[in-house]
Write a protein that binds this DNA or RNA. Structure first.
Lengths: 213, 213
DNA sequence: GCGTGTGAAGGGTTTCACAGCA
DNA sequence: TGCTGTGAAACCCTTCACACGC
């Protein structure tokens, strides 16, 4: 069992690996495998077997020496570790190309991620149904969020110019976890958790690392 | 001047910071600032001043003691470092919600990122214009890519089930840099550079880190 | 024997503290 | 005085090697 004290304590380098293991384990489950050794997992995940054992052992001993890890147990433990069982309510601002792609993506719900609100300043978009939500006026963000919704994460999918303003609005509305898709640097106070997904930067990094390979 | 020997040698931890600095510097330029100290940059970028100086000094000395860094020079150096001046041709497979959002996004071109081909298996989508390209049959990927296009990066925007097959096709067509948006683990040989952008995982990591803050 | 869990070693990254220069 | 550039120290993360349990 994962102690509650462990929650929130895992470092920023480990969490992505845990999520990566989880994806591999879900694939293995679909292939009806029941156990896997760290060596095999290593090949699948492209992470050294040693590191996998270290990562997993740091949460307790759930491998069987001589046998490996029980896949269904492993999945369960990984879900405990990253808190993957609770529903997570999302609010999105900016129903443009990217915004509506996110709202319409069918894969989130089964991962426990659910859009419960969407906002835009464009009157033509207000009132339209996107995925499971009705687009609301961006003016109304604070009231809508504070009034009736229990939002865990706010998503910024507006152009760079408006990104900071949207972040500020989220914070005023009590949303302290923000995912920013705008290719700009957004500042938030220390108590707010901000992550950036910048697709241009991702492509540039990829280009950099593939030079001369 | 950045020596060509430097290219491709910078570690995976530094490149994202370089790209982050670049974004800040572009913002500073728009604000018509001319110089900035590492201390000020630190506040903007949320990275320690010390680390910023280390990062920048590792490429040469282009700060003025007592003054700080010249913003226009800094931008120029950063572009040299990450190779940001060359055009980068992109091919995308999977013209779904996310795929068409990417094809229609206007911000890539000014960053030197350009879509030159898009593919889908859906006959209804083939022939349609998306952004600047005409959607082609996915069957035709190899011929189209090998025959006429100089593709630097291949983008996977198909459902999980098809992601591995698309990656294999890219590699067969000679595209050795791949960005995968499917929430699944894709295997590629060592000579191929693969990066993953998994939006579900990003949201889950955000949720994890915002627990109890 | 096979494969996990783990102390110790190794490598890399960040911070500290200050010399040196405008 | 102000701020960069840099050796040294501190820190963290990964790998090694092997003891222990199935």
């Amino acid at each position: 069992m994962i102690s509650p004290a462990t929650r929130g304590k895992i470092s920023d380098t480990v969490i992505p690996r845990i999520l990566h293991y989880l994806k591999v384990v879900q694939q293995l489950e679909r292939e009806n495998k029941t156990t896997i050794s760290s060596e095999e997992l290593s090949k699948r995940a492209n992470i050294s077997a040693c590191l996998i054992r270290k990562d997993l052992a740091s949460f307790g001993k759930f491998g069987q020496p001589g046998m490996g890890y029980d896949i269904s147990n492993l999945k369960s433990y990984l879900l405990d570790i990253i808190g993957g069982r609770e529903m997570c309510n999302l609010a999105l601002v900016g129903v443009g190309n990217l915004g509506s792609a996110l709202l319409n993506y069918k894969g989130f719900e089964e991962e426990g991620l659910k859009f419960v609100a969407a906002f835009d300043i464009d009157e033509k978009k207000v009132g339209k149904i996107c995925g499971n939500v009705i687009v609301e006026r961006a003016d109304n963000m604070k009231n809508s969020i504070v009034g009736k919704k229990n939002i865990h994460i706010g998503i910024i999918a507006v152009p760079s110019e408006s990104a900071q303003a949207v972040a500020d609005k989220f914070i005023k509305a009590g949303v302290f976890s923000v995912l920013n898709f705008a290719p700009t640097v957004v500042s938030v106070p220390a108590e707010v958790t901000l992550r950036n997904v910048d697709l241009s930067s991702e492509l540039k990094a990829l280009r950099y690392f593939s030079v001369d390979k």
